[in-house]
Amino acid sequence: MLNNYKSILVAVDGSKNAELALKHGVAIAKEKNATLYLLSVVDENAISHSSYAFTKVLAEEKEALEKELLKNIYYATEEGLNDVKPIVEIGNPKEMIATIVPENQAIDLIIVGATGKGKIQSSQLGTTTSYVVQSAPCNVLVVKE
Score class of each variant (00 low, 15 high):
G25K: 01
Y52K: 06
N4V: 14
H24P: 03
Y75S: 04
K23F: 05
K67H: 10
N45P: 06
L39G: 01
D43E: 11
S15Q: 09
K62Q: 10
G80N: 09
N72H: 12
N45F: 14
E79H: 10
N3L: 14
L20Y: 11
K16Q: 15
G80A: 09
Y37G: 02
S7Q: 12
M1C: 09
N17P: 14
L58C: 05
A21S: 10
L81P: 02
K56W: 10
I28N: 03
V57D: 00
S51H: 15
L58R: 05
I8C: 04
V84R: 01
L58V: 02
V41M: 01
L69N: 01
S15W: 07
N45T: 15
G80S: 11
A21N: 07
L70I: 13
H24S: 13
E19N: 13
K67P: 01
A21L: 03
V57Q: 00
D43F: 03
D43P: 01
D83A: 14
F54H: 00
A18M: 11
E44S: 12
Y5L: 09
V12P: 00
E44T: 12
V26L: 03
Y5A: 03
L58W: 00
K23C: 06
K56I: 12
V12D: 01
D83K: 12
T55L: 09
A64W: 02
N72L: 05
K16A: 14
A21V: 07
A21P: 04
A34Y: 02
E78V: 12
S48M: 13
Y74S: 15
